[in-house]
Nucleic acid binder design. Structure first.
Length: 283
DNA sequence: ATGGGGGCCTGCCGGC
DNA sequence: TGCCGGCAGGCCCCCA
C-alpha cells in the first residue's frame, strides 16, 4: 500500500503524540508479521521513551532512550492509528479492538497507537540506534528523493546502461528510495516518458527532467496527506486525498488529461505489476 | 550481475 | 446468494 508520501503522512501524524513520550505498555498479539518479531520486543519497549520519529524510505524509525530504535514497515495494508489523544480540539476515543490489531502501544500521555495489518506484509524490528543505517533492510536503499544527494548527476549515472524498463528502475529501491507503483506511474506521465522505455536508452536530458518531477509529485502527495485507495489512513484515521489528483494510476480506459490528446489511458503489466500510461503522450 | 517471477497474506470486487 | 478468479499501494529471495 503505502509509499513514501503515505509513510511521511503517518510519521507526521504520530510525531506530536509519540515524541518525547514514554511507552507504558506494549501489547504484542502475535509472534510475527512478515518475519518474527525480535526477542522480548514487548519488554524492550516497555518503559522506553520515544525521543524522535524519523523516516527512511518507507520505514518509520522510532529512536528510543534505551539506545535502540524501533523500525516499522507498513507493508501493503498496515495502519498506525492513534486513539485517546487530543488532536487539535478533538479527542479520539479508544475504539474496540479489531481483527488484525497486532501491536498496541500504550503511552504515558493516555494515547494509544495501534498497528493493524490484515495482510501481514508489514514488519517490525529493534535495532541499535547507532548502527541503524546498516540494518540489512536499510543498508542497500538508495538516496532519499527529497534529500540533497538525489540530483540530476546521480540519477543520470544510476540509469546509465540500464537494460531494464525505466518503470522497474524507478521502483528499484537501490536507485531511489520510497517510490512505489502509484508515484512511478504518475511521475512518468508528467515526464512524458513511457514506462516501457529502457532506462539506459533515455537521453541525459530526459533522465534529468525526472528529478524535479519526482520531487514535485511526492511533495504534492505529502501535502495532500497521501493517497487513500482501499487501506490507507492517516494516523488520525482521516483519508488522504491525493488519489483525486491521479492522472494515470487506476484510470485504464479513461481519457488522457493532456490538452488535445484524444487517447485513453492504457494498462500494461511489467514484472507482474500494472503500469498505467498514455501511449500517445508518453514515449 | 542483473532482471524477472514466485511467494508471502487477507480482503474485496466482478462475473457467472 | 455464493463461489471463484483476479487483483491490490511492498519487497525478499531464488533462479536463469
Amino acid at each position: 500500500m503505502p509509499e513514501l508520501p503515505e509513510i511521511e503522512t503517518v510519521r507526521r501524524g504520530l510525531a506530536p503524540v509519540m515524541e518525547g513520550v514514554r511507552i507504558v505498555q506494549a501489547d504484542v498479539n502475535r509472534p510475527d508479521l512478515r518475519w518474527p518479531f525480535p526477542e522480548n520486543m514487548s519488554n524492550r519497549l516497555t518503559g522506553a521513551k520515544i525521543e524522535r520519529l524519523r523516516r527512511r524510505s518507507k520505514y518509520i524509525l522510532a529512536d528510543l532512550d534505551t539506545g535502540e530504535s524501533l523500525m516499522i514497515h507498513l507493508g501493503m495494508s498496515g495502519r498506525m492509528l492513534i486513539s485517546g489523544a487530543k488532536l487539535g480540539t478533538f479527542t479520539h476515543d479508544h475504539p474496540p479492538a479489531e481483527k488484525h490489531d497486532h501491536v498496541v502501544f500504550h503511552l504515558e500521555n493516555g494515547a494509544r497507537v495501534t498497528f493493524n495489518d490484515p495482510r501481514r506484509f508489514g514488519a517490525m524490528d529493534l535495532l541499535d540506534t547507532k548502527t541503524a543505517d546498516s540494518h540489512k533492510l536499510l543498508a542497500t536503499i538508495g538516496p532519499e528523493p527529497l534529500g540533497n544527494s538525489f540530483d540530476e548527476a546521480y540519477l543520470a549515472d544510476a540509469l546509465q546502461n540500464k537494460g531494464s524498463p525505466v518503470k522497474s528502475a524507478l521502483l528499484d529501491q537501490r536507485i531511489v528510495a520510497g517510490l512505489g507503483n502509484i508515484y512511478v506511474c504518475e511521475t512518468l506521465y508528467r515526464a512524458r516518458i513511457s514506462p516501457l522505455r529502457k532506462a539506459g536508452q533515455l537521453s541525459k536530458l530526459r533522465v534529468k527532467s525526472l528529478v524535479p518531477i519526482i520531487r514535485q509529485v511526492l511533495t504534492e502527495a505529502i501535502e495532500a496527506g497521501g493517497s487513500s485507495l482501499k487501506d490507507f489512513r492517516q494516523a488520525d484515521g482521516d483519508l488522504g486525498y491525493f488519489q483525486h489528483s491521479f492522472d494515470v494510476y487506476g484510470r485504464e480506459g479513461e481519457p488522457c488529461r493532456t490538452d488535445d490528446c484524444a487517447n485513453t489511458i492504457m494498462r500494461a503489466v511489467q514484472s507482474g505489476r500494472s503500469s498505467f500510461y498514455c501511449p500517445t503522450c508518453q514515449r
